[in-house]
Design a protein around this nucleic acid. Structure first.
Length: 425
RNA sequence: AGAGAGGUGGCCGAGCGGUCGAAGGCGCACGCCUGGAAAGCGUGUAAACGGCAACGUUUCGAGGGUUCGAAUCCCUUCCUCUCUGCCA
């Protein structure tokens, strides 16, 4: 959520930034400013009314103490009108605050200056590319075929026990998953991220804090009985650990990592490109998250990007990095880099990581602040990224590492898998 | 799930109708002390909103009520802890 004070002081920049998302926000912003002004006026009026009744109450107290009950009772009569007034003003204030907030929830984050304008993924900007695309043998298969050939992932079985999008990994497929998780966590902790195991169900306040609610209500699985949501990403529980916090400047930066399954309803996203592991309702992901001093957050974003690069380089997967354009940028993000692995057998790029700086957008909702050197409270910047999302990395490995007689395991993973090849026995 | 206890500042913890934004401690900042540090001593230190400021208002889990006046009394609700039950 944007800060009203910021909008007030930087209206032109806000509008210009939002225009990169192909949003003409001028109506909304004007409305925000109008409501904000009205809110302040009502607040002042309320404050004055309350100040008056407080003063009278104090006087009554003093009169009673000095035994002047008659005078005190006389004063009491005066308070009833003030009481009515303050009640009415209080209601007005509430209405205005609610209307203002509802509007603010609808306004996405203002993109960073580096974000290119654009409509869709076609306008994303490729900023880096690394790794050779392997030449596969003639009978090369996409990963869902490989999964069957080598009996390592069973999609049918998942259909049976749950439904589409819940694959069953077995044998070396399951072991490879576990190897990837361990490898990612080890890389992240070695880079200074503290490992966490987090709850997979979160309450409404948490969903709201990171911006999934109320905006993306339908994307999360909801457990009605207990009014909890299955997490769509570790970002939600991880970031919400710091909801309503006032940190010392010396606490920053905070860096953490965690492995969690992620659950997404993916309502309305069926189509040609959702085969196999490409899009699932349940998948595994290792996330990295940072809470930063505002002046250092973009440097931190670069560090995160570099970190993810080293992992992909070690895995020897061909990948590229995109700077998302305004139209493709997530609601809460100011700047996002997407990592995509080239899936050779499918001949397409698969998103495997998304690294974002949310600046104060989440922190504002979360009330995540720190006390700066001058002793003033200031909102932190939050950042997070996948390091990495498992299914598409797995798809990339299966497809790019396939040979005629099996699938090779990337060298860095062998210590984790305990085997170097997946093949039919 | 049943019974009981409790939710107060950055943290811990006292307060149980006006003198309470709230004792005390820890932490933090500054100063003294020291060759330097620790310890010790002194001073300061809540947040949000409105206001150029002085200052005002709000906030003691959340929401409602009683009262001229509520951290304190009443109701509702959420959460935590302890015991019992169940259970990996």
């Amino acid at each position: 959520m944007l800060q009203v004070a910021y909008i007030r002081d930087h209206k032109a920049e806000v509008l210009k930034g939002l225009a990169k998302r192909q949003i003409d926000a001028s109506m909304m912003i004007d409305q925000v400013l109008l409501l904000d002004e009205a809110r302040r006026a009502t607040q002042t009026e309320l404050d004055n009314t309350l100040a008056e009744s407080n003063a009278i109450s104090k006087e009554i107290g003093n009169l009673f103490k000095s035994g002047k009950a008659a005078e005190a009772n006389e004063l009491k009569a005066k308070t009833s009108q003030l009481k009515e007034d303050s009640k009415a003003l209080g209601e007005q204030l509430n209405e205005k605050v609610n209307a203002l907030n509802e509007l603010l929830y609808k306004i996405p984050n203002v993109p960073h200056l580096d974000v290119p304008a654009g409509n869709s993924e076609a306008d994303n900007e490729e900023v880096y590319r690394e790794g050779d695309i392997p030449k596969l043998h003639a009978a090369a298969q996409p990963h869902w075929e490989l999964a069957k050939t080598y009996d390592i992932i069973d999609f049918e079985l998942g259909n049976k026990i749950t439904g589409a999008g819940f694959p069953v990994y077995k044998g070396k497929g399951a072991k490879l998953q576990r190897a990837l998780i361990s490898y990612f966590l080890d890389k992240n902790t070695a880079a200074g991220y503290t490992e966490y195991q987090l709850p997979l169900l979160v309450n409404e306040a948490s969903g709201f804090g990171t911006g999934q609610l109320p905006d993306k209500e339908g994307q999360m699985y909801h457990v009605g009985e207990d009014d909890l949501y299955l997490i769509p990403t570790a970002e939600v529980p991880a970031t919400n650990m710091y909801r309503d916090s006032l940190l010392a400047e010396t606490d920053l930066p905070i860096q953490l990592t965690g492995y969690t399954p992620c659950f997404r309803r993916e309502a309305g996203s069926y189509g040609a490109h959702v085969r196999g592991l490409n899009r699932l309702h349940q998948f595994d992901k290792v996330e990295i998250l940072r809470i930063e001093h505002p002046e250092k957050s973009y440097q931190a974003l670069e560090h995160m990007v570099e970190h993810v690069k080293t992992i992909l380089k070690e895995l020897k997967l061909p990948y590229r990095i995109l700077r998302l354009c305004g139209g493709d940028l997530g609601f809460t993000s100011a700047l996002t880099y997407d990592f995509e692995v080239f899936s050779t057998a499918q001949d397409r790029w698969l998103e495997i990581s998304s690294v974002s700086n949310f600046e104060t957008f989440q922190a504002n909702r979360l009330k995540l602040r720190f006390k700066n050197k001058e002793g003033k409270t200031e909102l932190c910047h939050t950042l997070n990224g996948s390091a990495l999302a498992l299914p598409r990395v797995l798809a990339g490995i299966l497809e790019n590492y396939q040979t005629e007689d099996g699938i090779d395991i990337p060298e860095v993973l062998i210590p984790y898998t305990g085997f170097s090849k997946i093949q039919n026995s």
